[in-house]
């Protein structure tokens, strides 16, 4: 996830990574990782702490100051089969929420012009 500082809101963090802060720690699906320092005193996500707990690489572009946090590593790509709450735009720019298709089977296909 893209970052311009070393903190972000729990909502943004969950929307982008699928991990949420619960009393047990950082959780995604059934998996929880203890992380007592996941939140700052202001209730924001402490990026450096969660990066360490979840083995998420944090890279920084020194010139611009922008950072990007990679997904958790060390295991498999999927840790749960629950599909994240993903919203993407259609060709006209209108947001489409994948969860609007609950109740139907979905074949999600990646393609590209290139």
């Amino acid at each position: 996830m893209l970052l311009d500082s070393l903190t972000t809101t729990p909502e943004m963090f969950t929307a982008r990574t699928g991990w949420s802060v619960r009393p047990e720690g950082l959780c995604k699906g059934d998996r929880c990782v203890p992380a007592p320092d996941a939140l700052t005193d202001d209730g924001l996500i402490n990026i450096e702490a969660v990066a360490q707990h979840l083995a998420m690489p944090l890279v920084t572009d020194e010139e611009s100051g922008w950072r990007a946090l990679g997904p958790e590593s060390g295991g498999s790509t999927l840790t749960t089969t629950e599909v994240p709450d993903l919203t993407l735009p259609d060709a006209d720019g209108n947001p489409f929420r994948l969860r609007s298709l609950l109740g139907r089977k979905v074949l999600l296909v990646a393609w590209a012009s290139w």
């Binding site: 083995a55 690489p57 890279v59 922008w66 990007a68 997904p71 790509t77 749960t80």
Partner: peptide, 28 residues
């Protein structure tokens, strides 16, 4: 469910870092 997770690709630290590098490049 366990088979879906088992069959998903492994994600070593290098692949995770690649995702971060790609995203940073995309933004720049």
């Amino acid at each position: 469910a366990d088979e879906v997770v088992r069959r998903s690709a492994g994600r070593p630290a290098e692949h995770s870092a690649a995702a971060a590098c790609f995203e940073l490049g995309q933004h720049l």
